[in-house]
C-alpha cells in the first residue's frame, strides 16, 4: 500500500527484473521435470563442507572451520559409488572473488551424474534436455540472444579444443599453454568467433586441463567438454576419472600449485578417496550454470538481471 513516498531504487530494480525471475522459476522447474522424467532423483548434499574439490583457479570461501562449497562434486560422486546411479542437484555454489557480468560469488548450479555413460553420451543427453526446456518455457526452439538467434532444434556444432585453437588462433592449445596465453586466446580469439546461431561444444581439452576428467590415452586428451551458447560458457562435463592413484596424483599437484600461488590450503576429502579406492563403475557428469542459461533464455546482459539480490 503506497503512502505517497518515492519508491526506493531497489524496489524499482526488483520490479524491472520480474519477467526474468518468472522465467527463471519456469526454467528451473522444467530442468527438474526433465531430469525426473529421465529417471533421476534429486539429491541434497551439504553447502557447508570440510574439503572442497581442489582446483588451481577456484577458491571456495572460508567460513569458520568450514568452506562454502564451490561445487557439490565430491559428495555427489560418493553417492554414485554408493549405488545412486542417476542423481542431480540444483543449488547455490560459491567462488570467492568471482564478480562480473557472468560471475557472482554465489550462483546456482545444476549438476548431474549418471553411471555407465561417457562425456559424449552427455552431449546428446543435454541437447535433448535443453530443447525440451527451451520449447516448454519459450514456446519455440529459437531464442534471441544479443544479435543472434540460437536454434536449439538444430544440430550442435562440435569442435575439439585443438581444432578451435588452430582455426581461430593459428596455434595449438599446448603452445598457448606454454606461453601462458591459453585463457587470453580463448576469451579474445576463440569465444568471440564461435558460431552464435547454434549451441557449440568445445571438447577434448589438453591433459593438463583435465581437472577431474578421464584421459583418453590414445588421443592424449582429457574427456571433457564445455557448452557455449552465444559465445558464453554454460556447462562443463567429464567422463569422470575413476582411477584412485591418478586422482591422488592430480590433487597433490593442485595442492602444490595452490601453495605456490599462496592460495588457501584445502584438506583432502578422505571419504571421497576411500570411495575411489573401493572401486567405482565408469560414469559421467556435468555442471551447468543455471544463472547463465537463464541469461541466454531471457536475453539478459548481466547476471544481476537474473537474480533477486546479488550481494556483491
Amino acid at each position: 500500500m503506497s503512502k505517497g513516498l518515492a519508491k526506493p531504487d531497489d524496489l524499482i530494480r526488483l520490479e524491472s527484473i520480474k519477467p526474468n525471475l518468472i522465467q527463471k522459476s519456469r526454467i528451473i522447474r522444467e530442468l527438474r521435470n526433465g531430469l525426473f522424467n529421465r529417471g533421476f532423483i534429486e539429491t541434497d548434499t551439504p553447502v557447508l563442507i570440510k574439503a572442497p574439490a581442489p582446483e588451481d583457479n577456484i577458491n571456495a570461501p572460508k567460513t569458520g572451520d568450514f568452506f562454502l562449497r564451490s561445487s557439490p562434486e565430491l559428495h555427489m560422486k560418493r553417492l554414485v559409488v554408493a549405488g545412486y546411479e542417476k542423481i542431480f542437484q540444483i543449488g547455490s555454489c560459491f567462488r570467492a572473488g568471482e564478480i562480473g557480468k557472468f560471475h557472482n560469488v554465489e550462483f546456482t548450479m545444476l549438476e548431474w551424474y549418471e553411471t555407465g555413460k561417457t562425456y559424449i553420451d552427455l552431449i546428446y543427453f543435454l541437447k535433448d534436455l535443453l530443447l525440451e526446456v527451451v520449447t516448454k518455457t519459450k514456446g519455440t526452439s529459437k531464442v534471441q540472444f544479443k544479435n543472434s538467434k540460437i536454434d536449439f532444434a538444430k544440430g550442435w556444432k562440435v569442435f575439439t579444443v585443438k581444432e578451435a585453437f588452430l582455426k581461430f588462433t593459428g596455434i595449438t592449445p599446448e603452445e598457448a599453454i606454454a606461453k601462458n596465453e591459453f585463457e587470453i586466446l580463448l576469451t579474445e580469439k576463440v569465444e568471440p568467433n564461435l558460431p552464435k546461431g547454434i549451441p557449440v561444444i568445445l571438447k577434448d581439452y589438453p591433459t593438463s586441463m583435465a581437472a577431474l576428467s578421464k584421459i583418453n590415452e590414445k588421443d592424449n586428451v582429457a574427456e571433457r567438454w564445455e557448452l557455449y551458447l552465444g559465445g558464453i560458457e554454460i556447462a562443463n562435463a567429464y567422463s569422470e576419472l575413476t582411477d584412485y592413484n591418478e586422482q591422488k596424483k592430480r590433487f597433490k599437484k593442485v595442492h602444490k600449485n595452490r601453495e605456490k600461488n599462496k592460495l588457501p590450503a584445502y584438506p583432502d576429502d578422505k571419504e571421497f578417496f576411500k570411495c575411489l579406492e573401493y572401486g567405482i563403475a565408469s560414469f559421467a557428469g556435468c555442471a551447468l550454470g543455471v544463472d547463465r542459461l537463464v541469461m541466454v533464455l531471457t536475453n539478459s546482459e548481466s547476471i544481476k538481471k537474473v537474480n533477486y539480490f546479488t550481494e556483491f
Partner: peptide, 12 residues
C-alpha cells in the same frame, strides 16, 4: 573493467 574466467582457467 571486466572480470572474466574461462573454463577452469585462471581469471582475466
Amino acid at each position: 573493467f571486466e572480470f572474466c574466467k574461462p573454463g577452469k582457467g585462471q581469471a582475466l
